[in-house]
Amino acid sequence: MEPVQYSYEDFARLPTMVFWFIGYDMLDVPKSRSRRILNRIYRFLCLASHTVCVGVMIFRMVEAKTIDNVSLIMRYATLVTYIINSDTKFATALQGNAIQSLNLKLAELYPKSTLDRIYHRVNDHYWTKSFVYLVIIYIGSSIMVVIGPLITSILAYFTQNVFTYMHCYPYFLYDPEQDPVWIYIGIYALEWLHSTHMVISNIGADIWLLYFQVQINLHFRGIIRSLEDHKPSVMHDQEDRQFLARIVDKQVHLVSLQNDLNDIFGGSLLLSLLTTAAVICTVAVYTLIQGATLEGFTYVIFIGTSVTQVYLVCYYGQQVLDLSGEVAHAVYNHDFHDASIAYKRYLLIIIIRAQQPVELNAMGYLSISLDTFKQLMTVSYRVITMLMQMIQ
Rank of each mutant, 00 (worst) to 15 (best):
M1A: 15
V4Y: 09
Q5G: 02
E9F: 09
D10K: 03
F11K: 01
L14H: 05
P15A: 09
T16D: 12
M17W: 06
W20N: 15
F21R: 01
D28M: 00
V29Y: 14
R36F: 11
R40Q: 07
S49A: 11
H50M: 13
I58A: 06
R60A: 13
S71F: 07
I73K: 10
I73A: 07
M74N: 04
R75K: 12
T78Y: 08
I84A: 12
F90W: 07
A93E: 09
L94Y: 06
L94W: 09
L102W: 06
N103R: 06
L104K: 14
D116S: 09
Y119R: 10
Y126L: 11
W127P: 02
V135I: 11
Y138H: 03
I139V: 05
M144F: 12
I147W: 09
L150M: 12
L150D: 04
T152R: 13
L155K: 13
F158C: 01
T159N: 10
Q160E: 15
P170R: 06
F172L: 01
L173Y: 09
L173I: 12
D179M: 02
I183Q: 06
I183L: 11
L190F: 05
H194K: 07
M198D: 12
I200N: 04
I200F: 03
Y211D: 05
Q215W: 08
N217I: 04
R221P: 10
L227K: 05
H236L: 10
K250P: 12
V252R: 10
S256H: 10
L257S: 00
D260I: 13
D260P: 13
L269Y: 12
L270R: 11
L271M: 15
L274P: 06
T276L: 14
V283T: 05
A284M: 06
E295Y: 14
F297V: 07
G304T: 11
G304H: 01
T305N: 04
T305R: 03
Q309W: 15
Y311V: 03
L312Q: 15
V313K: 03
V313N: 10
V313Q: 01
V313C: 06
V313E: 07
D322L: 09
E326I: 12
V327L: 04
H329Y: 15
H337Y: 07
S340D: 01
I341H: 04
K344F: 05
I349Q: 14
I350W: 03
I351T: 14
I352E: 15
P357R: 09
S369E: 00
F373V: 00
S380H: 07
